[in-house]
C-alpha cells in the first residue's frame, strides 16, 4: 500500500541538526535518570521487602482483584549479578 510517509521529502540539514541537538540532550537526560535510579537502590530494597511481605500475607494480584498468597519458599532470591531498572 502506498503511504504518504513514503513520499516525504528528504530530511533537510536543518531537520537533521534539530534531531541531533535534541538527541544529545536526550542522551544526557537518560544518563541522569540512570544515576538517579541507582541512587534510589536503598529505598527500592525496602519497597521490595515490603512487597514480599504483602505477597506472603495479603497475596499476589494474579488477575484483577484475584490474589494468591505466596509461600515463603517461593519468594525469589536476589541473584548475584548487577541489578538495574533502566535500560
Amino acid at each position: 500500500m502506498k503511504r504518504v510517509q513514503d513520499q516525504a521529502p528528504l530530511r533537510s540539514d536543518e531537520e537533521s541538526d534539530w534531531i541531533s541537538k535534541n538527541l544529545a540532550q536526550q542522551e544526557k537526560r537518560h544518563a541522569n535518570i540512570v544515576k538517579e535510579m541507582e541512587a534510589l537502590a536503598p529505598q527500592r530494597d525496602v519497597w521490595i521487602d515490603e512487597f514480599f511481605q504483602r505477597l506472603q500475607t495479603r497475596g499476589y494480584n494474579y488477575n484483577c482483584d484475584a490474589v494468591r498468597v505466596i509461600d515463603k519458599e517461593d519468594i525469589p532470591e536476589k541473584p548475584n549479578r548487577r541489578f538495574k531498572v533502566v535500560f
Binding site: E14, E15, W18, Q26, E27, R29, H30, I33, V86, F87
Partner: peptide, 20 residues
C-alpha cells in the same frame, strides 16, 4: 527510543520551536 523513566518535565524550561 531509549528507556526514559522517570522524567519530570516540569523541572526543565521550554526551548524555542524554531524549525523554519
Amino acid at each position: 527510543r531509549p528507556h526514559i523513566e522517570p522524567y519530570v518535565e516540569l523541572n526543565d524550561a521550554y526551548q524555542t520551536f524554531d524549525l523554519s
